[in-house]
Design a protein around this nucleic acid. Sequence first.
DNA 1: GATCCACAGGAATCCTCGGGGT
DNA 2: ACCCCGAGGATTCCTGTGGATC
Length: 334
Amino acid sequence: MITDARVLQPEFVPNDVKHRSAEVSHLSDTLRPIVEGNRATNSLLYGPSGAGKTCIAQHTIEQLRENVVALNYQYVNCWEDHSRFKTLYRLLDGIENTFDIHRQSTPKDELLERLREYDGPPYVVILDEVDQLQDKSLLYDLYRIPHITMVLIANREEDVFNTLDDRLNSRLGACPRIRFSQYSISELVTILEDRARWGIESDAINTDQLETIADYAAGDARVAIGIFRNAARVARQNGNDRITVDVIDQVVSETKSEIRQKTTDKLTHHQQVLYDTITEAGEIGAGDLYDAYCKVVDEPRTRRTIRNHLSKLEQYNLIVATGNTKARSYSLQS
DNA sequence: GATCCACAGGAATCCTCGGGGT
DNA sequence: ACCCCGAGGATTCCTGTGGATC
């Protein structure tokens, strides 16, 4: 029943993207100078998760590559590579300049120096989840390298600009910002129709069922494609040649927790305990939370460290904090 | 309204770990 | 075998803030 499993994968980037032509053309406008050999402007894509930011960034650059003789590009997820060193390493990796870097104790800004010295074709870098970048001054350093063009991606624009210093704000503050909003149900349906056409046999699913999936996904394309993929997998396991609504109902919660799991997997043990404690309590004040945390963990960290962890969890959109000072309480992100 | 207190978060410093140099 | 160095996490110290209490 499944004819091409690749197109059901979350990281698959289609040649033909739906409902984002305005965003694509805005982004390609900012990048167009590269085609004429000039310096392109940096840009920021922002919007809720599953709105197609990463996909559109990669798609647009792929398109650009077809028009430019030579162009390098690299995708960096700043959550996974959140330190200055790791991000720089990843960027050098994109231009294959890492063969002799094996230690963290390479002289202080040797990596940056190498990026500066790079004299190949224009280099476009996608910095996804850029608000998670530990050392924002890296953006300034990259900004000053002429042949590098940055495409920044974040959920909320204020998460990016609030954390920049004045110097960076005056430079990057003026860059084009492209807003992505949630997909509507019907938009999700057409996206799923494409995937269905490319990935599974033609009569294995119909519009009604795709609508059911889109409904469950609530505007998040990543969730929609995840449900679709799992439903196709379960249907195949059961030996069915069609994806029924029953199967879809069955895989929804599994898929959602799968996606949540991907996020919480990146947490440290201490962050995980905090998250679980909040999950259990529903809503909990800072003092009670710390006490509960200490009971669970062998070697509890200090209050100060826990506050850092909590603000990280908040940045990850896993929890929300409401109220100030004594009235502060933590609960799960809905 | 003055005072107290729990809490947030910035800055400086300490600690630990991994890898290189001698 | 030993020391050294850089990075990043944790801790210590601190200031500011707003709710609670009288």
